[in-house]
Computed example of a mutant assay.
Amino acid sequence: MRALIVEDEPELMSYLSLLLTNAGLVVDRTDTVETALAALRTAPFDIAVVDRRLPDGDGLSIVKAMANAENRPAFLMLTARDAKPDVIEGLNGGADDYLVKPFEPGELIARVRVLARRRNPKRSLVLSAGN
């Protein structure tokens, strides 16, 4: 499984990358709306973990831009915007899940696994080959 992290805080991006890599995902990282859209239009991703507050705009615009894309990933919004109207806007805007910072690492991984199961019920989160 391949994941894209869209986060502008370098330390958090590194931590998220480590968490998802340790969970068996291949991880790409970016920190702006523009570079995230370029990555999503270039390569297929199964999951995208997206912050709402990015230097060049709202991460929700990424979700909306990919709404009709053939290879649309599952979107998990990971953000400090915790007001109920923000959560509702994110989910109504096309996000598949919404998790508020600060978060529990185990919960993040569990939510990623749920999204992966929904998209590909028979596909494992971990790719194995040979012995």
Rank of each mutant, 00 (worst) to 15 (best):
I62Y: 03
I62E: 01
I62K: 00
I62C: 04
I62F: 04
V63E: 06
V63Y: 06
V63R: 04
V63A: 14
V63K: 04
K64Y: 13
K64P: 02
A65S: 12
A65R: 12
A65N: 10
A65Q: 13
M66A: 05
M66R: 02
A67W: 06
A67E: 12
A67S: 11
N68I: 14
N68G: 15
N68F: 15
N68Y: 13
A69G: 02
A69S: 15
A69Q: 13
A69T: 10
A69H: 09
A69L: 07
A69E: 09
E70D: 14
E70L: 12
E70T: 15
E70H: 06
E70F: 09
N71R: 07
N71W: 13
N71L: 14
N71Y: 10
N71G: 06
R72H: 06
R72Y: 09
R72V: 06
R72M: 15
R72Q: 07
R72C: 10
R72E: 01
P73H: 15
P73L: 01
P73S: 09
P73V: 05
P73A: 08
P73C: 10
P73R: 12
A74L: 06
A74C: 10
A74Q: 11
A74K: 14
A74Y: 15
A74S: 05
A74R: 13
F75K: 01
F75I: 00
F75E: 01
F75Y: 11
F75W: 10
F75H: 07
L76H: 07
L76E: 09
L76N: 07
L76T: 03
L76M: 09
L76Q: 11
M77I: 01
M77S: 00
M77D: 00
M77N: 00
M77Q: 00
L78F: 03
L78G: 02
L78M: 07
L78C: 02
L78W: 02
L78S: 03
L78K: 05
T79S: 07
T79E: 10
T79C: 01
T79I: 04
A80P: 04
A80K: 05
A80E: 10
A80D: 13
A80H: 05
A80T: 01
R81V: 06
R81D: 04
R81G: 04
R81T: 05
R81M: 12
D82F: 11
D82G: 11
D82A: 11
D82Q: 11
D82H: 10
D82N: 11
D82M: 04
D82C: 02
A83M: 14
A83H: 15
A83R: 14
A83C: 04
K84N: 04
K84I: 00
K84Q: 14
K84L: 09
K84W: 15
K84T: 01
P85S: 08
P85L: 08
P85K: 08
P85I: 06
P85T: 06
P85F: 02
P85V: 02
D86A: 01
D86K: 11
D86N: 06
D86Q: 08
D86I: 02
D86Y: 08
D86T: 04
V87N: 02
V87G: 03
V87Y: 11
V87Q: 10
V87F: 05
V87C: 09
V87M: 10
I88Q: 03
I88A: 12
E89H: 11
E89K: 13
E89R: 12
E89G: 02
G90I: 05
G90V: 13
G90W: 01
L91S: 05
L91I: 12
N92S: 07
N92E: 14
N92C: 11
N92V: 05
N92D: 15
N92A: 13
